[in-house]
Design a binder for these strands. Structure first.
Length: 483
DNA sequence: ATGTAC
């Protein structure tokens, strides 16, 4: 049992659980929250899970917990864990089942007020062209060699096929392609599950949304990003579908043996892991990168379908059909990066699970127009509520190793939400508020009700005040497509 | 999140 009294309050927004809290902890846990959000975090097992994570071997720095934290498989969703190279660990459960799940935002110059009469048609077109639902396949069935090519090239494959522009790739994390992906390390079962899922949305909290840019907080940054107050934007939230899920399943099973082989003590079986420089560790890393590239290509295909839908509704010859990419950034990944550890730059493996990379100004992996601003951070709210566009800060490096929050964060389990919320009623309520809803499953809709989530504005206010992200704009949904 | 169990 963890209580508020167990923490050292480092600042108004940082609470430290020191290593003295538990005999096996090797690094402290820092929770980024105000008093209310800390209370929320103490309401489930998420901080106990953070204490478990802090006992894994080969960690450095501290485990950072974001204000949108909630419990997950082994490691809480909304956590950052840093392991040292070359012999620190990598853990599939600390990446998440949806490898490289992330968000892409596209912006238009279409004014919401004048577009209103066509929004119902737009929602229907998007629902038609972006297949959604559990196990749902899409328009493409990739042959094994093409599947491998997608795993190796990510968005680069989509560019070759005419589904992307150069600017899309420039405005995607890692240009939409991680080097070192190894399709051979992904099982044939994973490839079979994924081969027809490129360009599909999936289910759960995944969605495609049409938003209106409701308020701009940083005028200059918003202008550079193509975000205009009162205009439409598109937000895509999804990941690597059954492909990444199967890879996680496969390696969680394989690593049961690895922990015995390498003598790793585990506080929770769900945290199975392997040394980064071991054969199983390297195999997972290669398979994880393959799934990441698949996810980048998947969001690229969905962006292509969103553009097709806009062109169909607003006319392909008009400027009004153009959707320019703002950015694409993941929130479920392990990345090899250099960070300042104990005052020295050190190469490490940063696991971000339900946490977004948020590098500050000057980062060379950004397109030149974004370099003075910092890296865009895309934070979806819960269904029917606001979403946020943020920027990374220089100040977050010693606090969160270049990371920030990823969303609202659950306060109600899926089961609890399904029990207490009626999908049909929720749909009516949303339509009443002016949000057009296209969903395959009313039970699925209920699981994603706004009541099941924290208030994203409190989460964003916390990361902003803690200095780990900077506010650019707030978006409001006007149409939502779900599985 | 997920062919919501092989």
């Amino acid at each position: 049992m963890i209580t508020k009294q167990d923490f050292n309050r480092l600042t108004d927004y940082i609470w430290e659980l020191p290593t003295t809290f538990h005999a096996q902890m090797t690094v402290p846990v820092w929770v980024f929250a105000d008093e209310d959000l800390l209370e929320d975090a103490l309401g489930d097992l998420s901080l106990q899970q953070a204490v478990n994570v802090a006992q894994l071997p080969g960690l450095v720095g501290h485990v950072a917990i974001m204000p949108d934290v909630h419990q997950g498989y082994g490691m809480p969703i909304g956590g950052v864990m840093v392991s040292r190279l070359p012999d620190g660990i990598i853990s599939p459960g600390a990446v998440g089942y949806d490898i490289n799940c992330g968000v892409r935002v596209l912006a238009s110059t279409i004014d919401y007020a004048s577009a209103q009469p066509w929004l119902a048609d737009l929602a229907s077109a998007l629902y038609r062209y972006c297949p959604s639902g559990v196990g749902k396949g899409g328009p493409l069935a990739l042959t094994p060699p093409v599947m491998d090519q997608v795993c190796l090239e990510g968005s680069g494959w989509a560019l070759e096929q005419g589904y992307a522009t150069e600017e899309d790739l420039a405005r995607t994390e890692e240009f939409g392609c991680l080097a070192g992906a190894d399709p051979q390390s992904a099982s044939s079962r994973a490839k079979t599950r994924g081969h027809d899922q490129l360009g599909t949305l999936g289910a759960g909290n995944h969605f495609l949304e049409v938003d209106v840019v409701e308020q701009v907080f940083d005028r200059e940054a918003a202008a550079t990003m193509g975000l205009h107050q009162g205009c439409l934007a598109v937000q895509i939230h999804c990941g690597s579908r059954g492909f990444g899920h199967q890879i996680c399943t496969d390696y969680v099973q394989q690593f049961q043996l690895a922990v015995l082989q390498y003598g790793i003590h585990l506080p929770d079986r769900e945290l199975v892991c392997a040394p980064l420089n071991s054969p199983p560790g390297e195999a997972y890393l290669g398979a994880m990168k393959a799934a990441a590239n698949f996810a980048f290509a998947n969001r690229q295909l969905l962006a292509y379908q969103a553009r097709r839908s806009f062109a169909e509704v607003f006319g392909s010859t008009s400027d009004r059909s153009s959707l320019r990419q703002v950015y694409d950034i993941a929130h479920n990944m392990a990345k090899l990066e250099t960070h300042i550890i104990d005052g020295q730059p050190q190469e490490v493996c940063v696991h971000r699970k339900g946490a977004t990379r948020a590098f500050g100004p000057g980062f060379e992996g950004l397109p030149t127009e974004y370099r003075p601003l910092g890296q865009p951070v895309l934070v979806p709210g819960s269904m029917g509520t606001e979403s946020w566009i943020l920027l990374g800060t220089a100040a977050n490096e010693p606090l969160t190793y270049g990371s920030t929050c990823h969303g609202a964060g659950r306060v109600m389990s899926r089961h609890q939400a399904k029990r207490t919320i009626r999908g049909h009623q929720l749909r009516q309520d949303l339509e009443q508020e002016g949000v057009r809803v296209r969903a395959g499953s009313m039970a699925g809709l209920a699981e994603e009700a706004p009541q099941a989530y924290k208030d994203v504005s409190r989460v964003v206010e916390t990361v902003s005040r803690a200095g780990i992200a900077h506010r650019v704009a707030r978006l409001r949904p006007v149409a939502v497509i779900k599985g």
